[in-house]
Design a protein around this nucleic acid. Sequence first.
RNA 1: AGGCGCGUAGCUCAGUUGGUUAGAGCGCACGACUGAUAAUCGUGAGGUCGGCAGUUCAAAUCUGCCCGUGCCUACCA
Length: 931
Amino acid sequence: MNYKDTVFLPRTDFPMRAGLPKKEPEILQNWQQVDLYRRLRETRQGAPKFILHDGPPYANGQLHIGHALNKILKDVINRSQSMLGKDANYVPGWDCHGLPIEWKIEEQYRKKGKDKDAVPTAEFRQECRDFAAHWLVVQSTEFQRLGVLGDWQSPYTTMAYEAEAKIAEELGKILMDGSLYRGAKPVMWSPVEKTALAEAEIEYEDHTSVTIYARFPVQSSALQALHNASIVIWTTTPWTMPGNRAIAYGDDIAYRIIEVTAVKDDVLVRKGDVLCLADDLCDVVADALGITAMTARATVAGHELAGTIAAHPMAADGYDFEVPLLAGSHVTTEQGTGFVHIAPGHGVEDYELAHLKHGIAVPETVGEDGYILPHLPLYGGMHALRDNARIADMMAQHGGVIGIGKLVHSYPHSWRSKAPVIYRNTAQWFVSMESHGLRDTALGELAKTAFYPAAGQKRLTSMIAQRPDWCLSRQRAWGVPLTIFVNKETGQPLRDPAVHARIVEAMRTEGADCWFLPNASRFLGSDYSADDYEQVTDILDVWFDSGSTHAFVLEDRPDLDSPADLYLEGSDQHRGWFHSSLLQSWATRGRAPYKGVLTHGFVLDEHGRKMSKSLGNVVTPQAVMEQNGADILRLWVVSSDYYNDLRIGPEIIKRMTDTYRRFRNTLRYLLGALDGYDQAEQVGYDDMPDLEKWVLHRIATLDDRICRMTESYDFHGIFTELHQFCNSDLSAFYFEIRKDMLYCDLPGSTGRRACRTVMQELFNRLTAWLAPIICFTAEEAWQAYVGDPENSVHLRQYDAVPANWRNDDIDANWSLIRQVRQVVMSALEKARNDGAIGASLQAAPQVYVTAAMQSAFDGQDAATLFITSAATIVTDPPPADAFRLDTVADVAVGFAVATGGKCARCWKVMPEVTADDGICKRCDDVVATLA
RNA sequence: AGGCGCGUAGCUCAGUUGGUUAGAGCGCACGACUGAUAAUCGUGAGGUCGGCAGUUCAAAUCUGCCCGUGCCUACCA
């Protein structure tokens, strides 16, 4: 007789093979059909809010793997907070203004042969707007495909009229309170594009510069040795000489004053010249200048140079001003002469030392086209980048230069035009870090913010502590304008709240474009004359846009709240969004816009290298979704230590699919085992076997851990716990042991019902625990059970755990049992290798243990736990040849083959079975009852 | 070049205040089962804890230097 029909094998329609690339879009469609997002909002109405404020990605291209990591992590957090019962409303957003989009539009113009300057601003801005709108839709679709749940119907954008108006309004606040000021600053300037460039627009390439050694005759000094001497500087930028206003020396550097006694032919330096140079560099410089012999007049320490005044090399030709020697901490003796010429209009350090520290005025010497301003003697009309050789010759003729050379070095270039750029001093708008205590408040408040990982706090703190004033103005077109009128006479910005309110109101209905129309009097009203004011046409740094999102998103949307619980971005945003949002919020509200900050690392290839087209190691989220599915990508995120850099590549993806299968098969087995399960089968806790109680205990401890790890955003920990639980506790242990009961016992038996009660709990818990991570598969499995699309797994919460499930006595007992079991497994393996048995059911081990261990087995059927047909647990001294494991003390196993015949139904070897197709007593009873 | 990180088995990760023989899961190898079957179970082999030096009775853990790698900043006369 064939007993297979009398055995209750697992049965389910939930397929073993996932086919995620095909299945996920279907599940997505179901979610859209039942409007899961809206439904979840309704379900969580009135619940405590959890606000993860989305840092806006830039709307200008296809998503890369970094976007995927970022959005998946956000989604896992939101879904898991929702599982904790919170109302985690996620509103995605986009950063739409800014340079990269302008580039793209300009690029299109160039292809069509169009001139950007000939296009009206409004038209140009509209094209930028359309461009951003296009990519926004593309990215939105891809984010949703990743399973990210949020308000995709009404996301926020920085280019919405409301947002633009609000950003201008925010600017108004710092304009009114006086922390916004107009200053001059040396910025990277591209003479080709006639514009200032942001740091991101700069790339460094080799460039050949003309170098000069210039002499600055000492006018007055406390040092007698400097009488008649010249200070010698070396520079790679001769064109900055008209802007020279000081010389920097190093306090701790030793200098030597030498007199030239012999020179080579055809050199600029003369016998008898008295020069001052860094001691260490004398020989090198002498060599470069062609000096063949010299005598040392004196050696002085750097600090002795304080107070020395020199003359400009061209003093006789219109540059007749004092050039003081100043101590500069940045001066080194790695190259040059140990003296650095300071042109405050052409270098950040120069500006800081001369202007900020010593109050030296900043001259304007170079025009926006790169030509030295015509009114400047000798240099006027020469080009900063092209005429350096001419400048050097000219200066040499006048005796100001005593050495000319060339240097190939890396030099900033415009990313767009590939042309070299210069530092140029221009008028810009700044937010002061000090005038209103911004820096100090910021640093003080920073200590109250929670950082994940903690190191982020230190990083952000040191950045805020060191940063200069925030330069808000950009000479650009696509962005929110600095809505400022400057009084032509006083140079002061107009600070009239009524005027500014009119501007903001106009922007709210017409967008920021209204600022660029020629209608200043509309805003100025009757109190001011448009003729008296200059309208600023600069636009705001886009970091101010995104730094203001907390205002126009968190505060302005009734379904959100400020400050946010969490900001979450890549670690590069310490310098970016975290930074600008903090400053913006502190400047306008005096507090941080977030309670917590989480940073993740960057995605690298399998070998820890940066992804690049040339290395051919780029992994795109699109490819992974098409080949493996979004759930694999989601699993990858939580399997990684995302606080550090993450790696991805073919092997890692392969490993992830292996891991995925384990989760999927666990769910599948549970679904199969629960075939036809009815709540009426349920067995109360007290009536359950110890093994079931042990599983419930594991659920209780796991639940506790998962809830705690959810709150600290430790999903890698959750992933590890869940994976090992499915592997070691369920598949290899609990499921394996309970197969016999599940397949062969009577459906109505207490044991089998208890087992299914527990499996039902397991299924409920696992689908909920996994839902934030593999959101598609959790839904698929859940639907395989409930069959009701409106009852989505994502509307659920983690089920509460009854207090009595926690049972440390049972836990201790079963950890002893599992130790013994491990030795038995090894002993059986040895017997198997010896050819004594195949299946473990052929064995009947005798296990020698301590009394404590034996009592752990009280009330247990040891054979069931070992999956053998019989087993005895004794405290007798074991025979010498008994099997032992080094790692487990006090356990020995004597091997024996089970006696009797193999039951044709349950496959156990039992003494009562004698016939070939006979069955054991238990099965006999079951079959009889079933019939 | 500077600041901040990271470097533990083929892969992903644990390693508490320095303290037995460095752990887990996957993968791999071998075996079993053929009633979770493109599954499942068992056993096993894999590591000079990036390298070198130091502190210590004792270092994956502390210190210094070096190498590799990433982010940020700078390319500086």
